[in-house]
Design a protein around this nucleic acid. Structure first.
Lengths: 253, 253
DNA sequence: CGCACCATTGACGTGGTTCAACCTTGGTGG
DNA sequence: CCACCAAGGTTGAACCACGTCAATGGTGCG
C-alpha cells in the first residue's frame, strides 16, 4: 500500500531528492518555464532548484493543502483532480514533462496532485521564484504564455466532457497519449501512464465503460492492446476520426 | 434576423463606437486588467482604448478569425463557444463585466464569441497593448493573475460537465448567475443573460432537459420563474445544496 | 504459490436524448 | 388596439447510451 505524503511543504521528507543534471542538459530545457532564459538566468535558477521524485500512486499535494513550492515535471506523469463532498471525482489536468504546477500568488492548492507514474519535479520555493519572475519580465511572459495554453487545453477538454460519446472520449484520450508519449515509427506504440480508473476519472465515465470502449476499439482494429498498459496504433488518423476530430489539431493536456 | 459581423478587425464597421467614460469613472476600474494601474498608466490606457457595442445575438468573433484587438467586457454578457465539425457545440466560458478576451501572443481566435445580451467592450489594439504590458510588469502580473483565475474556473466547470446530474448542472448555473448579477435583498432576483439554448450549450445538455429541470426546481419551490428570463430565489443555500456544492465556494465563470 | 489489485464481461435499470406536438411571449403591421 | 406570426420555450412518449451491480478473469508482486 502506497503511503500518503503530506504536502510540498515537507519535500525533504516526502520526496526523494536527486542530484539533478545542470539546467543546460535538462530534457525540458526548451519547453518549460525556463525556455526563454539566458545563461545567466539559468545560473540563478540552478541555485534555486531542487529535484524531487514520487512513486506511482503517491499523493504529492492534497486539495486545500499548503503549497510552498512551484515547479515543473521533468519526467513521468501526475494527475490533477478535484472532488465533490460525496466522493465523485473529476480529473482536471494531466501533468506531463515540462508542465508547470503552482501559482505564485496563492499558497493553497486548488486540486489534489497524485503521481500517475513515478514522477520527478524540478521545484522552486514559491517566494524565491516569485521574486525572480518580477525581476525577469520574459520569465513572467513565458509563465503567462504557458498559463494561456493550459486555459485553451482546459476549454478544449470541456468539449470532450460535455459533448463527446464514450467511444469518442476514449479515442480522444488514447490519441492524445499516443501523440505525446509514443515511440516514433509505425505502428505507434506507448505505455499508458494511467490506470483504467484514472482514465475514467479524466473522461467523466465509469471504469466499466472505459474498459468496454477499449475492447470495442480493439475489436474494430483501431488499436492493439498489450497487457494492462501497452497500446499501439497503426493508423492514428483513423483513431482521430473515431475521436470526432477530423483534423489532428485538438485538445492536448 | 441578426446579421453576422465579421471580426474585431472590422470594429468600426461591426460595432457601434461610444464615447466612453474616463477610466477613473469606469465601472470595472478595480476588477479588470487595469485594476493595479496608477494614474499615469491609466492615462496611457485612456489614449489606447475604444468602446464598442454589439446587440444580443450578434457574432463578435468567429472561430479561427483574425483578432486584431484585445479587451474587457464593460457591461452585458458574451459567450465563448467551441464547436465540432458535425455541429455539436460546447460553451467554454461566459464573459461578464471585467472579464478579458484575447491573448496578445496569438492573432487567431480559438473560440467563437457571441453577444448573449447587448454587450460593450473596452478594447485595445493587440500590438499596442502588448507593448504596454512589456513595459509595465504589474499589468502583466495582473494579466497572469486573471488568466490563472480563468484556468481555475475552467477546471471547476469540468466537474460540472463530467460528474454532475442534469438537475445539479442547472442548479449550479442558476446559483452562479444569481450570485453574480442579482439585485441584493431577499428574495434574490435576476434576469437570466442566457436563452435556454445557451444554457444547454453551457451545461452539456439539450434544451429540453434544461427546460424540464427548471420546471422541476420551480415545482420543488427552490426558484420562481417570471417570464422567459426572470428568476428569483428565496433560499440560495438550498439551491446550492441541489447543485451538489455544500459550501458556497465553487465555480464562477 | 497465492493473494491483492486491476481489468473485463454480462445482465439489467435509468437518466437524458430524440422526435414531435403544442404553448407563450413579445414584436409588427393592418 | 388587436390579430398575427415567428422565435423561444414547454411537455409527452419512446428509445438508448451509459451507469450500476455482480461475477469472473488476468497479472504481477511478496
Amino acid at each position: 500500500m502506497t503511503h500518503i505524503d503530506p504536502s510540498l511543504a515537507d519535500l525533504t521528507r516526502a520526496g526523494r531528492t536527486l542530484a539533478g543534471p545542470g539546467c543546460s542538459q535538462c530534457p525540458i530545457r526548451h519547453r518549460a518555464i525556463c525556455a526563454t532564459c539566458e545563461d545567466s538566468e539559468l545560473d540563478r535558477l540552478e541555485g534555486m532548484k531542487s529535484y524531487h521524485t514520487w512513486r506511482a500512486g503517491e499523493t504529492i499535494v492534497m486539495e486545500g493543502a499548503d503549497l510552498a513550492f512551484v515547479g515543473s515535471v521533468v519526467s513521468g506523469c501526475a494527475t490533477l483532480t478535484r472532488s465533490m463532498e460525496d466522493g465523485r471525482m473529476q480529473m482536471v489536468g494531466l501533468l506531463m514533462p515540462s508542465d508547470f504546477i503552482g501559482r505564485n500568488d496563492r499558497a493553497v492548492a486548488a486540486y489534489e496532485v497524485v503521481a500517475a507514474t513515478d514522477v520527478t519535479f524540478c521545484m522552486f520555493r514559491r517566494a524565491e521564484f516569485r521574486q525572480m519572475m518580477r525581476e525577469t519580465p520574459h520569465v513572467m511572459e513565458r509563465m503567462l504564455e504557458m498559463s494561456l495554453d493550459e486555459l485553451d487545453a482546459a476549454r478544449d477538454w470541456m468539449i470532450v466532457l460535455g459533448r463527446k460519446t464514450a467511444r469518442e472520449k476514449v479515442a480522444t484520450l488514447l490519441a492524445n497519449i499516443l501523440r505525446r508519449v509514443s515511440t516514433q515509427g509505425s505502428p505507434l506504440h506507448a505505455q499508458l501512464p494511467l490506470t483504467r480508473d484514472a482514465m475514467a476519472t479524466y473522461l467523466g465515465l465509469t471504469i466499466e465503460t472505459v474498459s468496454r470502449q477499449m475492447t470495442a476499439l480493439r475489436k474494430d482494429g483501431l488499436i492493439d492492446l498489450d497487457g494492462r498498459r501497452g497500446i499501439s496504433c497503426r493508423d492514428l488518423s483513423a483513431l482521430l476520426a473515431e475521436a470526432g476530430d477530423d483534423e489532428d489539431g485538438q485538445s492536448p493536456a
